[in-house]
Amino acid sequence: MNSMNNVTTIKELVTKKITVLKEEVIDQYQVSFEVKKDDVHHLLSVLKQAGWRQLSYLSAVDWIEDNEFELVYIVFNWEKPVHIQIRCRIDRNAPTMDTILPIYPGAKYYEREAHEFFGIAFPGNDSHEKQLILENWDDIPPLRKDFDPKAYSDARFPKREYSNDHVEMNGQKESKQAKREERRTHILDLIKGGKK
């Protein structure tokens, strides 16, 4: 009962300050708000003052059909047991999002990670372009939906060769195979042509 109260107070707090595009109560410990890109900083600073002091995670989702990235900021309160997710959509073609370093300094490495895996730029975070996990990466960011990990892996890492008796491919689809071939040649070209 108490925690449901928490959720309603959070709703009041958020809706009073800014316009919420979509809200979702996942359970009594998690609430999700979708807001406009420009409202994120304001909302985060409001929440930080209200006690959500910790940025638990900054993640991204690739909605390739809508041609948009969705950034998910998860903040956590040490007094009230509620996680709040702040979601916002940004353009996929030129993904940029102002950094939240002044509000949550811990976002430094999450932003670097998001830049590395999705190619989202964070102006204001000086080190967002430094490599963190992938070293010497030479392709499009790997967690984008149009990246084909299988083709990359086939081109880059040689497979152990077995006789065909033991290998069973389930449902070889022609179209996907052709696409993979295309990407493989593309990657091989990249390797031959040197670093970008």
């Binding site: 992938l134 790997p142 299988k150 990359y152 892996s153 086939d154 890492f157 497979k159 152990r160």
Partner: peptide, 19 residues
């Protein structure tokens, strides 16, 4: 380490260690 196992199609994991 032998042939990539369940990670055989990952972009980040090598397939044959003995190469």
């Amino acid at each position: 380490t032998i042939n990539g196992g369940i990670y055989h199609d990952s972009h980040a994991v090598i397939n044959q260690l003995d190469r």
